[in-house]
C-alpha cells in the first residue's frame, strides 16, 4: 500500500512530515502491535510520518502537539481520566484504535458488577489500587475524530485510516455486517448450514469474516454493526438451543458496553432461566 505524502494542515511548512503519536490506556497492547505487524509497510510508514511518540517502539519521545494520535485502551483509572484530556489537547486528530478505546473492552465487564468484589478476587490488598467502577470508551471523555473497531483492529483498516487522514479524505471503512464479508468470501452461512450460533448478522465487518471461515460462529469482536437487530439474532439463537444466560454471555464479551449489546444482554439477564 502506498502511504504517500501529506499536506500539512497548518500549511506553514509544507516539507514538514506530519507527526504520529501512539498512546495506551487500559489494554492488552494488541492494537498497537498491529502497527508493528505491518511488516511490509512499517518502514514506508515511518518515511511518511514522523513517529514522535510511540513508547512501545521507541525511547525517543518528542513533545506534542501531534498531527495524529492513536489511542489504545479504555479509561479505568482516575489518572487516565485526566490523562486523556491532556492527550486530546496535544492532538490535532485523535483516532481511537480497538474495542477497548471505542467500547470499553473486555474490562468493561466490570460495569455489570461490583468492582470492589472483583478487586478482592484478584488482589490481596485492594486498598493499594486506584481504579474506577466503570471502564469507559474514550468518546465518553473527549471529542474523537475517528473510531477504528476490532479486538484487535485489522491492520489493513488501520493503514487505510492513516492514509485517509494523511490525505485529508474520509476513510473507506465499511459499517456493514460480517454477513456481507462471508458472502464475498463465499463462506456458507454457519447458522443455516451447520446450526452454529453466530453473531455475524449484528457485528460490524472488518475482520474479513475469519471465524465462519474457520467453522465457528462470529463472536462479535468488531462490535455492533449499524442498525444491528440484536433481538432477531437472539431469537435465532434461542431456536438453536441457547438459553438466556448463554445470550447474556454472548453479548458480554469484548464490546459488552457498546449500547446495542449492553441493552440486549440486560434484557436476557432479566429473563428467568
Amino acid at each position: 500500500m502506498k502511504i504517500g505524502s501529506h499536506r500539512t494542515r497548518r500549511g506553514a511548512d509544507a516539507t514538514r512530515k506530519p507527526t504520529l503519536a501512539v498512546f495506551k490506556l487500559a489494554s492488552c497492547d494488541g492494537c498497537q502491535l498491529a502497527i508493528l505487524d505491518c511488516e511490509d509497510e512499517l518502514l514506508a510508514l515511518s518515511g511518511a510520518v514522523e513517529v514522535a511518540n510511540f513508547a512501545e517502539a521507541s525511547r525517543a519521545i518528542q513533545k506534542g502537539p501531534y498531527d495524529i494520535s492513536l489511542v489504545e485502551g479504555s479509561v479505568t483509572t482516575p489518572h487516565d481520566a485526566e490523562r486523556i484530556h491532556e492527550i486530546r489537547r496535544q492532538s490535532r486528530t485523535l483516532i481511537t484504535i480497538g474495542a477497548c478505546a471505542t467500547a470499553g473492552g473486555i474490562q468493561a465487564l466490570r460495569n455489570f458488577t461490583d468492582v470492589a468484589e472483583l478487586a478482592r478476587a484478584v488482589y490481596a490488598s485492594p486498598d493499594y489500587l486506584s481504579t474506577l467502577s466503570k471502564s469507559t470508551p474514550i468518546v465518553e471523555h473527549v471529542f474523537v475524530d475517528y473510531q477504528l473497531r476490532g479486538c484487535p483492529i485489522d491492520k489493513r483498516q488501520l493503514l487505510e485510516v492513516l492514509t485517509a487522514f494523511l490525505h485529508g479524505r474520509k476513510p473507506a471503512v465499511s459499517t456493514a455486517s460480517v454477513c456481507l464479508e462471508c458472502k464475498r468470501r463465499g463462506t456458507p452461512c454457519v447458522m443455516v448450514a451447520h446450526g452454529t450460533p453466530c453473531l455475524g448478522p449484528v457485528t460490524q465487518a472488518g475482520c474479513g469474516a475469519i471465524c465462519p471461515a474457520y467453522d465457528r460462529g462470529c463472536y462479535a469482536c468488531f462490535g455492533p454493526a449499524e442498525t444491528a437487530n440484536t433481538a432477531s439474532v437472539a431469537t435465532l439463537w434461542g431456536a438453536m438451543g441457547a438459553a438466556a444466560p448463554d445470550l447474556v454471555r454472548a453479548f458480554r464479551t469484548f464490546n459488552a458496553a457498546a449500547e446495542p449489546f449492553r441493552r440486549e444482554s440486560e434484557l436476557h439477564e432479566r429473563t428467568p432461566g
Binding site: 465487564l109 484478584v122 448463554d246
Partner: peptide, 14 residues
Amino acid sequence: EPPRFFEGLLRGRH
C-alpha cells in the same frame, strides 16, 4: 498498569 481483574471477570464464564 491499570488493573483489569481478569481472574474476577472469568468467574461465571463458560
